[in-house]
């Protein structure tokens, strides 16, 4: 198991009820896991906890056997080696595509950085856009750059927070297929958050169904979707 979450508890300061109590969950190496759930069920928060952007009040998180946090320790996000693609991409507006992708490549020299940047632009098919600024790109292009930027430092785990929600539906399908292809090719462990059943079915090796901060079901996509058919159809009418 690559990511192990045990008895995790979390509470947003300004909300009345705890969001997670005793959440336990594992993610396997090399798999694409999908967290599926309605909006507000806690999917983004879970990603933020794994990335170290929020501090849990209890429980532990291990990534690749290493403790990220438990009662005594807390590893800062920059030390976790986890890539996160944000819902609205969060590309640095004051940097070109090239600078954005090179941003996380702190341990390389200039030549290596250049090579890695070109490699990633090739993977996402954006070779001709290196000197553009984010606002000069379409939504789908920004999405690809965000993916390239997150993958550049070679994270052991990459996470996507509703990566298609800002794209129109035709583009969604195309990018989804591309993304799936890239993830399969690189074999990277990934966690993918969505509220869309179709996305989950198409891209996931495994689905975790989340509801109100609790794991309702998990397993192979067909099984999970079948077992929870009624509830899912109700939720998404």
């Amino acid at each position: 198991m690559f990511v192990q979450i045990k008895d995790l508890a979390f509470h947003y300061k300004n909300s009345r009820n705890p969001l997670f109590e005793n959440l336990s969950l594992n993610f396997n190496q090399g798999e694409v896991s999908v967290i599926l759930g309605e909006s507000g069920s806690g999917k983004s928060t879970l990603l933020r906890l794994i990335a170290g952007l929020e501090v849990p009040s209890r429980g532990s998180i291990l990534i690749d056997q290493a403790v990220m946090n438990d009662t005594f320790r807390f590893v800062q996000p920059e030390k976790r080696g986890v890539g996160l693609v944000f819902q609205d991409y969060a590309l640095f507006p004051h940097m070109t595509v090239e600078k954005n992708i090179k941003f996380g490549l702190t341990k390389m020299n200039r030549k290596q950085k250049q090579a890695r940047m070109e490699e990633l632009l090739a993977i996402v098919g954006m070779e001709d856009y290196a000197s553009r600024y984010p606002y000069e790109l379409s939504g789908g292009q920004q999405q690809r750059v965000a993916l390239a930027r997150a993958m550049a430092p070679n994270p052991s785990l990459i996470m996507f927070d509703e990566p298609f929600s800002n794209l129109d539906s035709k583009l969604q399908l195309q990018i989804r297929d591309e993304l799936q292809e890239i993830l399969k090719r690189t074999g990277i462990t990934s966690i993918f958050v969505t509220h869309d059943e179709e996305d989950a079915r198409a891209i996931g090796d495994r689905i975790i169904l989340m509801n109100n901060g609790k794991i309702q079901d998990e397993g192979r996509p067909e099984m999970v979707l079948k077992r929870n058919k009624e509830q899912l159809s109700l939720a998404y009418v």
Binding site: G52, A90, F92, F103
Partner: peptide
């Protein structure tokens, strides 16, 4: 969100401050 993006890309709070926050 830009600060958080920078941190997941391996920059400490202080480095993020100089490279991202004050630029923005």
């Amino acid at each position: 969100v830009f600060t958080e993006a920078s941190r997941t890309l391996g920059m400490s709070v202080t480095k993020t401050f100089f490279k991202v926050d004050i630029k923005m």
